[in-house]
């Protein structure tokens, strides 16, 4: 097992890096197509991450230069659902093994955009879920979940998403 990992480590690492570069870019781009109805009073835009993920580095890179509505972007890492505090976006890493209900319960009604990367998660209630179709990164959108979180997604975004009802 260790051997296998070592062998394909470089290739895998590159694949993973590319995937998470894209995902980080997507997450940032979502902010342009989604409106947060209740403007939080803070002077920062908070992106939370739960579970260990390779997205940390590319996202940190983007955060350095970009802003959302002229607000600085801050990244917060949570280790368990109980830690989750108020944030605009919560990214659930595929390495996060806590039950989804716990996480959703912690964030419901707080205007948080939940983004996941596990097949079937959108059906279970995350607003956006990354999937791979024909080796291409796509995303599912759960319109009900979006609306429940008090978010408005632009039609330009939805037309690219795989809509989950």
């Amino acid at each position: 097992m260790t051997f296998f990992i070592t062998c394909s480590f470089t290739g895998l690492l590159q694949e993973q890096a590319k995937e998470y570069n894209l995902k980080a870019a997507f997450i940032y781009n979502f902010t342009k197509y989604i409106e947060w109805n209740e403007p939080a009073n803070e002077n920062e835009f908070i992106i939370g991450i739960i579970g260990e993920s390779s997205i940390n580095d590319p996202l940190a890179e983007i955060v350095k230069t970009e802003t959302v509505d002229n607000k600085k972007i801050t990244i917060r890492h949570f280790t368990k659902p109980a830690d989750i505090s108020l944030c605009h976006i919560l990214f659930i890493s595929r390495n996060c093994n806590f039950p989804l209900e716990d996480i959703l319960g912690k964030t419901s009604g707080k205007g948080t955009l939940i983004i996941s990367e596990k097949n079937g998660y959108a059906e279970q209630g995350t607003a956006i879920n990354f999937v791979t179709v024909k080796q291409k990164l796509k995303f599912e959108a759960n319109v009900k979940a979006l609306n429940a979180a008090g978010l408005t997604a632009s039609s330009q975004l939805l037309k690219l998403a795989i809509i989950i009802k």
């Binding site: 781009n29 342009k32 990164l137 330009q156 975004l157 037309k159």
Partner: peptide, 14 residues
């Protein structure tokens, strides 16, 4: 203007 989001999300099919 319609195609901007496809560029943003690299969606060539769309």
């Amino acid at each position: 203007e319609n195609a901007i989001s496809t560029l943003v999300f690299f969606d060539q099919d769309a």
